[in-house]
Nucleic acid binder design. Structure first.
Lengths: 198, 198
DNA sequence: AGTAAAACTTGACACAGTGTCAATTGACTC
DNA sequence: GAGTCAATTGACACTGTGTCAAGTTTTACT
């Protein structure tokens, strides 16, 4: 049924992601998106009730495309806790640039829009579960630093790997992406494992 | 001359800070500030050209009140590099909650307002100088980690101590302030000094 | 006390961006 | 040919910032 509608919906989501990626998310208005798709602004509301809902749908669409699951496979298959930590950090650190445009738009909306805040918060909570799993693996190996509980270690790791930190380091500080990744892997080890285990 | 004007200006700044502190910076409108002072919204523009300028002035006013300089004295007087690092981290970490309301408002404006972005950026740059000085002291003692250059270490420390990280850890993760401080001191040591020097 | 400047008020308006609504057009289907 | 769905057009409400002109109150000076 209504394949025309489905089709337009996809075009909208795609255009949204494109604009967000190139324009760095700052000021992507409903008008811009409609223009990119080739429909009127009002027509957008036939597909998505609000801007927040559109961004939300774009987030899910992005996941489909980028295939988050398969990126995390190496981490899940790691044998030691430290290997798991390294793999997770690297996977996430390399994923950030791909979602950055969208993340920034959602992050900016958080202050004003409760729905957007909830959506983003939920997604970050999912990512936190990955952190928790890595920390758990460390604890199982007894390689987790004694100065932190598992929850605290998870919190710290989560904060370290936040999109905002990525933004600060790669944008403001001009760290190349590869350097950022390498560094974060080392930092997480230093902070979370027993005395900088190699 | 015109002491009335000066007086009102101060009342405006004070009201702004009060609202920002209690209301957590989310939606403090010009109307709210005017209402708190007891004047009309339009009258605010007789004192400050734009909202950004008002926020900017409030920032400087806050510094006067909180006396940033004296807070940093212990850090400057530290003898070893590590003592200096610890003192600076603790001083800054304890300063964040006091400026948080204002910081949040300025941070939120960054996306849309270039002036606000510039103001906040400048202030963060000042704070970065403090990081750089601490790193330099470590380097002088040869206690700086060999895996980072001085600039990289400064960047990392700066990112770690960002207001947004404080927000994540104390708000989202519910870390008590004291725990946050203690932890950040330890983390900075772990990341920046030679193999976790005690 | 008288006056001029400065501080503030009132009320109106422009602008951007989101969201809403009603009436209409074009196309595709049964 | 009637019905339905996607989209269009044009208008409007709402919020918050910033601007403007005209009028009133306060303050300061002599």
């Amino acid at each position: 049924m209504s394949s025309k509608s489905e089709q337009t919906r996809k075009r909208i989501l795609q255009a949204t992601l494109d604009l967000l990626e190139t324009g760095a998310g700052n000021g992507v208005r409903m008008t811009d998106i409609a223009g990119a798709v080739g429909i009127t602004r009002q027509a957008l509301y036939l597909h998505f009730a609000t801007r927040a809902e559109l961004l939300m749908a774009a987030t899910q669409y992005l996941d489909e495309i980028k295939d988050v699951e398969s990126r995390l496979a190496p981490s899940r298959e790691a044998t030691s806790g430290i290997a798991r930590l390294d793999a997770f950090v690297a996977a996430w650190a390399n994923y950030i640039p791909e979602i950055y445009g969208l993340a920034k738009a959602l992050l900016a909306m958080q202050e004003t829009d409760d729905v957007a805040a909830a959506v983003w918060c939920q997604r970050m909570q999912d990512m936190k579960e990955g952190c928790a799993a890595a920390v758990k693996a460390l604890a199982a190996d007894a390689t987790l630093t004694p100065s932190l509980t598992a929850d605290e270690a998870t919190d710290l790791m989560w904060a370290m790997l936040s999109v905002r930190n990525w933004e600060v380091l790669t944008r403001d500080c001009q760290w190349p992406q590869a350097f950022y990744v390498e560094n974060m892997v080392r930092n997480c080890r230093a902070l979370l494992t027993q005395s900088g285990t190699r």
